[in-house]
Nucleic acid binder design. Sequence first.
DNA 1: AATCCAATTGAGAATTTTTTTCAATTGTAA
DNA 2: TTACAATTGAAAAAAATTCTCAATTGGATT
Lengths: 146, 146
Amino acid sequence: MKEKQFKHKQAWVKTFFHARGFKCTPQRLAVLSVLKNSPKHLSISEIHSRVREFLPKVGLATIYRTLETLEELGLVVKVHLEDGCHSYTVVSREHGHPMVCVRCNRVFEFRECPIDRMSKRLSRKTGFAIETHFLQFLGKCQDCKR
Amino acid sequence: MKEKQFKHKQAWVKTFFHARGFKCTPQRLAVLSVLKNSPKHLSISEIHSRVREFLPKVGLATIYRTLETLEELGLVVKVHLEDGCHSYTVVSREHGHPMVCVRCNRVFEFRECPIDRMSKRLSRKTGFAIETHFLQFLGKCQDCKR
DNA sequence: AATCCAATTGAGAATTTTTTTCAATTGTAA
DNA sequence: TTACAATTGAAAAAAATTCTCAATTGGATT
Ligand SMILES: [Zn+2]
Ligand SMILES: [Zn+2]
Ligand SMILES: [Zn+2]
Ligand SMILES: [Zn+2]
């Protein structure tokens, strides 16, 4: 059951890569899988060491390259924190925004966008043509509250 | 007139530093002034070289330390971009959000916060206690549109 | 105005992070 | 299977950031 779901996902990813002209390599699948299986955002070196558990000879440069690719494909995003913006998390395909727990580092996704609806108003008001926005919430998750 | 305003601002900053237990040094004033006088966001090394026009012997480490301080004091913020989060801009004291032009790099400030009002709803809905949020708009300014 | 002291700085070294290079490997289309 | 462009690993190079420590300095106190 779990395995079937896994295979299904893998297949989907494979198609996804091919449709965009990228090869489906074990390294890319591993990085994606590591991120998908982590409730917390992960730094580059955390990703590296976790990937190495599966593929022991993967180099750090490959992690950098892979994350760049996955980010470009919209499968992962950088997590922006007070002390730097060097960790990553997966995102669903729909436009949503990460809520990051500053205590346990878990990332939840808020699957709404409060910005969309106000974009036009902002444009009208300021003359600025918004193309994209970065929105991220920092706080405490249900478990870490209080 | 302009000079008077400048002096006034300087004095204000001095008080601001002192009230928070920081010294008012030429280096800090220079970094702040460089950022205030730049309509565009600036990278660390851009800041460094501009500061050096006034104070030729300032070291790069001082720029790092100063930016950390100014950020902590809420006088400047990091600008987050697709390809990294390594440049800075000044912000007004009120809570607002930067609109960054991806063409000319100028930063405008949207002096409203669309998030405040929805924070409670989000909390109620998700159980997540928002402490801060990070919102930034990317797009084209009036001059760079079309 | 002179003194004192903790905070800050400059210089450079050290460390860490990121990018580059290139030969070897490997997905994938044919 | 074969062929080839894309991708990778390994190592070096480059860039970014932090650290150390003696010297300096802002500002409080006299
Ligand atoms: Zn938590
Ligand atoms: Zn959004
Ligand atoms: Zn960032
Ligand atoms: Zn512009």
